[in-house]
Design a protein around this nucleic acid. Sequence first.
DNA 1: TCCGTCATGTAAATGGTTACATGATTCG
DNA 2: CGAATCATGTAACCATTTACATGACGGA
Lengths: 185, 185
Amino acid sequence: MPRSTQTDLAVLAALSIEPMTGYALRDAIRVHLGAFWSESFGQIYPALARLRADGLVAADEGDRSGSNVHSLTAAGRARLVELMREPPAATPPRNGMLLRLFFGSVLGAAACRELVSDARAQATAMLDHLADARRATEAEPAHLLQRPYWLMTISAGEHSARAAIAWADETLETLAKLDRDDRLG
Amino acid sequence: MPRSTQTDLAVLAALSIEPMTGYALRDAIRVHLGAFWSESFGQIYPALARLRADGLVAADEGDRSGSNVHSLTAAGRARLVELMREPPAATPPRNGMLLRLFFGSVLGAAACRELVSDARAQATAMLDHLADARRATEAEPAHLLQRPYWLMTISAGEHSARAAIAWADETLETLAKLDRDDRLG
DNA sequence: TCCGTCATGTAAATGGTTACATGATTCG
DNA sequence: CGAATCATGTAACCATTTACATGACGGA
């Protein structure tokens, strides 16, 4: 039985916006936090069971039989604040694209171009997705407490994606030159 | 006994530059790939044992008694190319700072400023580290096959860090305004 | 009726870190 | 000699994904 404070934080925080079933929780995390967070069912359901047992969330029957709509209890809200105050745990970096590019001489410039242009495509897709998210968030009422924070995280994604695109363009040029050199010998 | 092709790739790739002990391998990964990759002893030693058993690396006695200097075999080099060609596995995102900022209304603007300015400090530290790495890499002989690829990964880090700083500055201003609003009403 | 979606959960395998145990070598 | 570093490895734990099993409900 896993005991991840990281997952607890994400679950409690999401439930602080709105009571939800485990299924809806996963969907909400995927849609709204997908750019910087993820949770799987295998994490969410055991986490909900644990939080329920600890009295941090309460489960009400939903409209469908067997569905449990979870909401924060007072203790859950206190625990949420406590977890929020903890410094974010630094996850060890693992970027397979950069690892391969670092050892790019093994593959050659042509294969590396594909690697980088794939990364560029991912960044533009992310930018598109963020544009939608920004429109949707800006359509929310201005007095909504969460709105400015949501926009900040969207902006983080935009800065990051634009940087990735700029880097990819610069790098693709360098690789094009290397590729010509490869071919000429 | 874990069987991570990711770790295998990193280990084989590092050994393709230079034969090393497990200890030196971890150090080399930390120093040279630290901005986008990490491996712990608990991964490296079992991986080396496995690769040795599969005939992908060979172990020679080092100068110290009990130390094993590992080098790639021909089969190991073939395996390296094979792993390099595999598309990089996308690691699910987990950014604790952005998670907390998304739910920033729970903490309030003041606490969020600390979160963001910590992130800014990390980015400037990264930029400093990358400046050193760039100097060292540019000092390598220009004909060194790996040099341009190393510079590309350094540039990726620089773009990413500069974007993080620009975002942090923009966000700190927004948070300062929110903080004033919090205090006034 | 049958399919897609909503919904809950479990089991197994994987991936990974951390802490520990052990000992050689080097340098002050 | 004692401390720091080099070096190898294991064991325990934690986190996480994937695949699977199960079933209700709504609509074509």
